[in-house]
């Protein structure tokens, strides 16, 4: 699971090493990545929103 989160974070930054990528693509199903990606996107939006809220107060 940690590996999946790390890979999704790497995708957010747009940087991924070939080794980790190969490891990801050994996985049988893409679904953990897709679900984690969607969740992390929501988390990302919430984080930016709460930073904005905090900065505005």
């Amino acid at each position: 699971m940690l590996q999946v989160i790390k890979s999704v974070l790497a995708a957010f930054l747009g940087v991924q090493s070939e080794k980790n990528r190969q490891q990801d693509f050994q996985s049988r199903s893409p679904w953990p990545f897709i679900v984690t990606g969607v969740v992390m996107t929501l988390v990302f939006v919430l984080v930016v929103a709460s930073v904005a809220r905090w900065a505005a107060s």
Partner: peptide, 11 residues
């Protein structure tokens, strides 16, 4: 064709 350290730095 890849260097993760450099890529992380320039990000």
């Amino acid at each position: 064709h890849e260097n993760t350290t450099v890529e992380v730095i320039w990000t």
